[in-house]
């Protein structure tokens, strides 16, 4: 607890010069994670696309598949009609 709030923003590692690059302090109310939203939105789209690709192309295209005898008759009937 004590470590968490007091010291975390003091970056004093001499070995990590890049870390001292903090140019401003952004508080809770000023921070709007648009970048995170953009990235996560992109991830969402990729997931949806890949899911459909995997299910309808890779999986259903990988015939034959295990079906129940009854339904196969039903779909066969639909096919004839």
């Amino acid at each position: 607890m004590s470590h968490a709030t007091d010291e975390s923003t003091q970056i004093q590692d001499p070995d990590q010069p890049t870390d001292s690059d903090q140019v401003r302090e952004i508080g809770h109310d000023e921070f709007d994670p648009v970048g995170a939203l953009a990235l996560i939105g992109l991830y969402f789209l990729i997931l949806v696309f890949l899911w459909f690709f995997m299910y309808f192309v890779e999986f259903l295209g990988n015939d034959p598949t295990v079906v129940s005898g009854i339904v196969s008759v039903v779909t066969g009937g639909v096919g004839l009609a």
């Binding site: 903090q22 140019v23 302090e25 970048g35 995170a36 953009a38 990235l39």
Partner: peptide
């Protein structure tokens, strides 16, 4: 995923990062 990316973004913006993905 969201929380971690947002936390990284917070760091990046404090370090002067800008833009939707430029940070």
């Amino acid at each position: 995923a969201f929380t971690v990316v947002a936390s990284m973004e917070h760091g990046a913006r404090q370090r002067g990062g800008e833009g939707y993905l430029g940070w």
